[in-house]
Design a binder for these strands. Structure first.
Lengths: 212, 212, 212, 212
DNA sequence: CATGAATGAGGTTTCATTCAT
DNA sequence: GATGAATGAAACCTCATTCAT
């Protein structure tokens, strides 16, 4: 039996890269691109600052790497959602619920996207990888809407892209702007009860719209 | 009468403050709080940097001043919208349209809010002024919903706060995340036609929900 | 008698700039552009490092400022040399002597030029000021050569630019490459006697060439 | 015979060393000692950076190795020049021409020497090898001058070392300072015509000096 | 013989802020 | 009310070099 061809220590490189990426994700999502500090990322990752540049080139490229991973994560989660196996009404319900819970459990997704949008998507535009990662949900939603219409349940003329964006909107905005909304309305909009009410409202609204 | 009671000098001070505030609004909305540069604000305002500190204390306080003005502006615009004079369906239609166009024409409102939310609304929380400036639209919307229900047009059980947030959501998110959405979908979602389609979809969706 | 319109303290700015420039001249001439350290310049000038960027923008621009000053200095020294008032032979002798002594007493001129040439004159090319500062000596030398020829002393067909460059060459190279030459020849070519012999040889060579 | 006494592996080592040396020569001559980057040398040589340290110790020693090779190269070229077989006038002409063309075709020689002189020949001083490599041309030039004098062609009292340095000067300076000279005179002094004129002038000047 | 991973020190530059008038 | 001069701290990034295999 020969010794394994790839020495076991070699994986430290991957590990270091992953540690850096995780720390960077944390930092960027907490402070945005401009507010993030490479020093803090290095410290939190427990690696030398120089190593970050060794692996990722510079702050911008590191941000892009984080962004790509974030998108890969949500796309993977979306893959696990099998809308095609559900009846139309249930599928819409599940889509709203999934979107809501994903954003709720991944606040970093929201802050990263906000930061990227502030900078007019400069990083994302130069990423070939992300542009290939179109969400499968748009197509799945189109199918669901078709089925619902054929069953005489859903209304005509609903644009799946618009609806997809609207569903994302109502989930995303409530969470991304939670701090200012809470301050203005003078209540804690992240209290468990408030969250439950929100999900209930959103589901009702979307179904109220698509159902005949 | 020779000399006016309020000396013209005072005007200059007001003017300087206003110039600074306008420049700061521009800078903060372009780069976010962390990315904004006091130097650039001074340069664009055409005043000495020191003057900014003289009038506004520091960068944080300046940001708060900008935020307060921004909220004051939108509240003023909202005041001009007389939903109570319209029939319920038209009122809902107008509310969506107003929200949409206000965000569209005031992109700085969006970026400022995003920046503030990234920092958990630290500035806003310490502002008594803003917290008093509750939007009048929530109450007006509540009235509209009541009227619509009484006329047998609208469904029961629609929470005006939730609906208000949802209307804001669908307008805001489409614009705030326009850059990443455009990149991912591979189209220009700010093209005039796309904007018109969006407004049409949103109106349909909200009405589709509230109407019986 | 009114008080002077320009407050006396204002000149501190000029003084700081000059101190920085002098320190930079020293540093760049000692270590070349790449080897020079902004930190050391600040330290030697006794000013905050930030001030260097406040006044000069960046390292490249600072280098250019030094270069411009250096050229201004030598041009000023050249102005003081009145070749037109001398007989042709004496004028040539003086030109060689002046060039030699200027380089000898301004070693920084040599190292700065070497550094700039290493980088293909990138700084100099973007300087409008320097390109206007053509050396007056070329024209003066042309006149001297003309007069010498008319007096039947000098040979025909001597190109003043070529001769000017050659005179500069024999003075400059001996000094700029003194260290390696000394090492190779195993003698101290900067010893007073060696310097005197060099000047004597150069004068002889140039005169030997131009004289009929 | 199966295996050669000198194993082929050794060849690889030599080859690696040579590749590194060539890449280093290129880098140092382009950027000077301080501006040169060990990373770039490794990249251009196509070898691991560690290998450079394995073979050459450190950046300074690598520079010295480059310098030694450069001197060895020019000495070898000088060896091929047989001034003793020519008549004196032709010999002087050839010496100027050789020097000129060698510098012209080996710009790296110039930049390396400039870099070394900037640092007061620190590397060269500690190299026993280079100091032994005295140029054979000085002695050959002395012989030529003697022969010319004996034939009644050349003047008395010409110091061969001084003349050797002067010939080097007029060739070297024109090329080493070409960038700044071109910038100041506003012409391209490296254009083919300009180069031909320069050689012609130099030959004329040296001969004009040594001939009676 | 050769290499990918890793680093401490230090490089240029930028930042919000204050000093002195 | 207004300003040019000045700064300490810290930002991003780079460098020659070494570690561990």
């Amino acid at each position: 039996m020969a010794s394994s061809p790839s020495p076991p220590r070699l994986r430290d490189a991957d590990k270091s890269q992953l540690t850096i990426l995780t720390a960077a994700l944390d930092e960027f999502s907490q402070f945005g691109f401009a507010g993030a500090r490479v020093d803090r990322i290095a410290e939190q990752a427990g690696v030398n600052k120089r190593l970050i540049y060794y692996y990722f080139g510079n702050k911008d490229d590191l941000f892009l790497a984080v962004l790509e991973r974030t998108y890969a994560d949500i796309r993977a989660a979306e893959q696990a959602l099998h809308l095609d196996a559900m009846d139309p009404v249930e599928a819409v319900r599940q889509l709203v619920s999934f979107t809501w819970h994903y954003y709720l459990e991944h606040p970093e997704f929201i802050t990263l996207l906000n930061s990227e949008n502030l900078h007019q998507a400069v990083h994302l535009k130069q990423s070939a990888r992300i542009q290939e990662m179109n969400s499968p949900l748009v197509q799945l939603l189109a199918d669901v809407l078709d089925r619902g219409r054929q069953q005489g349940l859903f209304r005509d003329g609903v644009d799946p892209i618009q609806l997809y964006i609207s569903i994302a909107s109502i989930c995303y905005f409530y969470l991304s702007n939670n701090a200012t909304l809470s301050a203005i309305f003078g209540r804690d909009l992240k209290a468990p009860k408030a969250l439950a009410q929100r999900l209930s409202h959103m589901t009702e609204m979307v179904l109220g719209y698509v159902l005949r």
